[in-house]
Simulated scan of single mutants.
Amino acid sequence: MIDVALARSLAEAGLRWHPATGDRFLIDTDAFDAEVFTISEMTIEAHTYPTGTELGFNGTTEWALDSVSTDDSLWLPREDQMRELLGPIFHALIRGESGDYEVTVTIDDEIQTFASPDAENAYGNALLAYIDASLRIENVERS
């Protein structure tokens, strides 16, 4: 699973979450421990309203919680979700000689590799670099 600090960095960099079945998240407030929840149509459903998306907890009698806003949640993207977000810049995921997972991407016409003991964190670091590169002012074409 992706490191919580890295998931928070991705959110702060601008990665947006559109909750779907199978997504993992945690409630990002001091009142909750770092318990990870998974959206499931049986227990946790995403409800979209004009004011935002709420995650509804169905039938959870042990919780004094009906719903929580996605603004108070932190998405923990999966490996497949991050690979999809990298899209055409993604080249490969391999297990390097050190035993770390290595994700290779092209960012700003340069091949870059991001390594981590966990594949999710290697993908997360590549995605964070991609978002950062996409938001740099020198990358914006001027008319």
Score class of each variant (00 low, 15 high):
Ile44Lys: 01
Pro19Trp: 04
Ala20Lys: 09
Asp33Val: 10
Thr43Phe: 07
Leu10Asn: 02
Ala13Gln: 06
Leu15Tyr: 02
Phe37Asn: 09
Arg8Ile: 00
Leu10Tyr: 01
Glu12Ala: 15
Thr21Cys: 11
Thr38Ile: 06
Arg24Pro: 06
Met42Cys: 05
Ala13Thr: 04
His47Trp: 10
Ala13Asn: 03
Asp30Ile: 03
Arg24Glu: 13
Ala31Ser: 14
Glu35Lys: 11
Ala20Ser: 15
Thr21Arg: 12
Ser9Asn: 12
Arg16Asn: 08
Leu15Trp: 02
Ala20Ile: 02
Leu10Cys: 04
Glu45Leu: 09
Pro19Glu: 06
Pro19Ala: 12
Thr29Glu: 12
His47Glu: 13
Arg16Trp: 04
Glu12Met: 13
Thr29Leu: 07
Glu45His: 09
Thr29Ala: 12
Ala31Asp: 13
Thr43Met: 05
Ala20Thr: 12
Asp23Tyr: 01
Arg8Gly: 00
Val36Gly: 03
Met42Gly: 05
Gly14Cys: 06
Ile27Lys: 14
Arg16Lys: 14
Met42Tyr: 07
Ile39Glu: 03
Pro19Asn: 06
Ile39Gly: 07
Ala11Glu: 05
Ser40Gly: 14
Arg24Leu: 13
Ser40Arg: 13
Val36Phe: 00
Arg8Tyr: 00
Arg8His: 01
Trp17Asn: 05
Asp23Met: 01
Phe32Lys: 07
Arg16Gly: 08
Asp23Ile: 01
Ala13Lys: 04
His47Cys: 07
Phe32Gly: 05
Trp17Cys: 08
Glu35Asn: 08
Asp33Gln: 14
His47Ile: 11
Glu12Tyr: 06
Gly14Tyr: 08
Ala20Arg: 08
Phe37Val: 04
Arg8Gln: 03
Asp33Phe: 07
Gly22Cys: 07
Met42Thr: 15
Leu15Thr: 05
His47Ser: 09
Asp23Lys: 00
Thr21Ser: 15
Asp33Glu: 15
Phe25Tyr: 12
Phe25Gly: 10
Thr38Gly: 02
Arg24Thr: 09
Leu26Thr: 10
Thr48Trp: 00
Asp23Pro: 08
Thr48Phe: 01
Glu12His: 11
Pro19Tyr: 08
Ile27Tyr: 10
Thr43Ser: 06
Val36Tyr: 01
Met42His: 13
Phe37Tyr: 15
Val36Glu: 13
Leu26Met: 15
Phe32Arg: 13
Phe37Thr: 04
Thr38His: 00
Ile44Phe: 03
Ala34Trp: 04
Arg8Phe: 00
Ile44Asn: 02
Asp23Phe: 00
Pro19Ser: 11
Glu45Tyr: 07
Trp17Met: 03
Ser9Arg: 15
Glu35Met: 08
Thr43Pro: 01
Arg16Met: 10
His18Ala: 13
Asp23Arg: 00
Asp23Leu: 01
Met42Asn: 12
Ile39Ala: 06
Ala31Glu: 14
Ala20Gly: 14
Ile39Phe: 02
Arg16His: 10
Thr38Asn: 01
Gly14Glu: 04
Asp33Gly: 14
Gly22Leu: 03
Ala11Asp: 05
Ile27Trp: 10
Gly22Ser: 08
Glu41His: 15
Glu35Cys: 03
Arg24Asp: 11
Glu12Cys: 09
Ile39Gln: 03
Ile44Glu: 02
Ala20Asp: 12
His47Leu: 09
Asp30Ala: 15
Thr38Lys: 03
Phe25Pro: 11
Ala13Val: 04
Ala46Gly: 12
Glu35Tyr: 05
Asp28Phe: 02
Gly22Tyr: 03
Arg24Lys: 14
Ala20Met: 04
